[in-house]
Amino acid sequence: MADNKTENLVSKPPLQVALIDKNGLMSRAWAVFFRDLYRRVAYKGGNSIDENIEDIDQLVAAVEANIIAISENKEAIETNALAIAQNAEDIVANSEAIVQNALAIAENATNIEANAQAIVLLANSLDTHVNASQAHNSNGDIVGFNDLADETTVGLVKRMASIADAVETTVDITTVDIGAAPAAYDQAYTQSVTDLTNENKAAINQLASDLNDAIAVLNNLLEESKTSGQMTTP
């Protein structure tokens, strides 16, 4: 309650409150104000305006508090509206991203199917290639690592080991030719025949040795040819 009600001839007008409410009627605060004003200046039966000052002040304070709350709510509503608008933009962006992802997934599915068909085709081609006896523009059947040659089939052979050269013969008969035999015994003639015969014998022995060396080289060649697979082993 006011300290001295008689100091107030008329209560404060509720200036923060609309005079007419949304229904076209005078608001309660203004109605109380005009009632008390009437009692103060015109009512003959008494004067109660001072007794209602505190009630009006409380109503004004409540209205002002409501105005502040409404202002705060308005700011919160505006903030929420901005957030809702941003969320709407984000939803649109996400929707577009989802559509793009769906298209990409569909394209990937198509690519996966195409790749699967290509893999099957490649596998079939590989099987055909593996089973083929001729490929890569080869001039005949392909020869593998273990496809050894034989008498009728071309194939692999090992490289033959190195063989030393055969010894060249150095036989050279230098004794002069013997002339016609004399009618009677001639020691000189007989000696020349003996010398030539002995030289022939030595030369023949050397030729035999050289021939044996050539035969050994030939046998070694044959053996290495068999070992390398170039010749069939009997």
Score class of each variant (00 low, 15 high):
residue 197 T to S: 07
residue 49 I to K: 14
residue 81 A to E: 11
residue 159 R to G: 15
residue 211 L to H: 04
residue 45 G to D: 02
residue 4 N to A: 13
residue 12 K to R: 15
residue 1 M to L: 04
residue 97 A to V: 14
residue 151 E to P: 11
residue 95 S to D: 09
residue 127 D to W: 04
residue 59 L to C: 06
residue 194 T to W: 06
residue 135 A to W: 07
residue 179 G to A: 04
residue 121 L to E: 15
residue 133 S to F: 03
residue 143 V to H: 03
residue 222 L to A: 10
residue 47 N to S: 02
residue 6 T to Y: 12
residue 34 F to L: 04
residue 230 Q to E: 13
residue 96 E to V: 13
residue 69 A to G: 03
residue 130 V to S: 14
residue 12 K to D: 13
residue 105 I to H: 04
residue 12 K to T: 10
residue 76 A to F: 10
residue 176 V to M: 12
residue 72 E to N: 08
residue 47 N to P: 00
residue 20 I to D: 05
residue 196 L to I: 00
residue 100 Q to K: 15
residue 54 E to C: 07
residue 140 G to W: 01
residue 26 M to C: 05
residue 194 T to S: 13
residue 130 V to P: 09
residue 75 E to T: 07
residue 131 N to C: 08
residue 206 Q to C: 03
residue 221 L to R: 08
residue 123 A to E: 12
residue 79 T to I: 04
residue 106 A to I: 02
residue 138 S to A: 08
residue 157 V to S: 06
residue 171 V to Q: 00
residue 69 A to H: 03
residue 133 S to Y: 11
residue 91 I to N: 04
residue 224 E to P: 05
residue 175 T to V: 08
residue 2 A to I: 12
residue 150 D to A: 02
residue 181 A to V: 06
residue 41 V to L: 14
residue 147 D to F: 05
residue 31 A to S: 10
residue 220 N to E: 11
residue 189 Y to H: 00
residue 52 N to I: 11
residue 108 N to R: 03
residue 107 E to C: 01
residue 181 A to K: 05
residue 220 N to D: 11
residue 221 L to T: 09
residue 125 S to A: 14
residue 190 T to Y: 05
residue 130 V to R: 13
residue 171 V to S: 00
residue 162 S to C: 07
residue 162 S to D: 10
residue 19 L to W: 08
residue 136 H to F: 13
residue 68 I to F: 07
residue 160 M to Q: 15
residue 217 V to W: 02
residue 89 E to A: 14
residue 18 A to P: 15
residue 93 A to V: 12
residue 204 I to A: 14
residue 106 A to H: 01
residue 136 H to N: 15
residue 7 E to Q: 13
residue 15 L to Y: 06
residue 118 A to T: 00
residue 169 T to C: 01
residue 5 K to L: 14
residue 96 E to M: 12
residue 38 Y to S: 09
residue 195 D to A: 12
residue 231 M to D: 11
residue 149 A to Q: 07
residue 131 N to E: 13
residue 24 G to H: 01
residue 164 A to Q: 09
residue 172 D to T: 01
residue 222 L to I: 14
residue 133 S to N: 07
residue 141 D to L: 14
residue 186 D to Q: 04
residue 100 Q to M: 14
residue 191 Q to V: 10
residue 225 S to A: 11
residue 114 A to F: 00
residue 77 I to L: 07
residue 184 A to E: 00
residue 77 I to M: 07
residue 232 T to I: 12
residue 40 R to Q: 03
residue 27 S to E: 03
residue 25 L to I: 08
residue 21 D to R: 00
residue 24 G to Q: 02
residue 197 T to G: 05
residue 104 A to S: 06
residue 88 A to L: 11
residue 130 V to M: 12
residue 34 F to M: 03
residue 77 I to W: 09
residue 178 I to W: 01
residue 103 L to I: 15
residue 2 A to E: 10
residue 82 L to Q: 08
residue 22 K to E: 14
residue 177 D to N: 07
residue 214 A to M: 00
residue 3 D to P: 02
residue 170 T to E: 08
residue 119 I to Q: 01
residue 117 Q to W: 08
residue 113 E to Q: 12
residue 84 I to K: 06
residue 109 A to R: 02
residue 219 N to W: 05
residue 56 I to M: 06
residue 197 T to C: 02
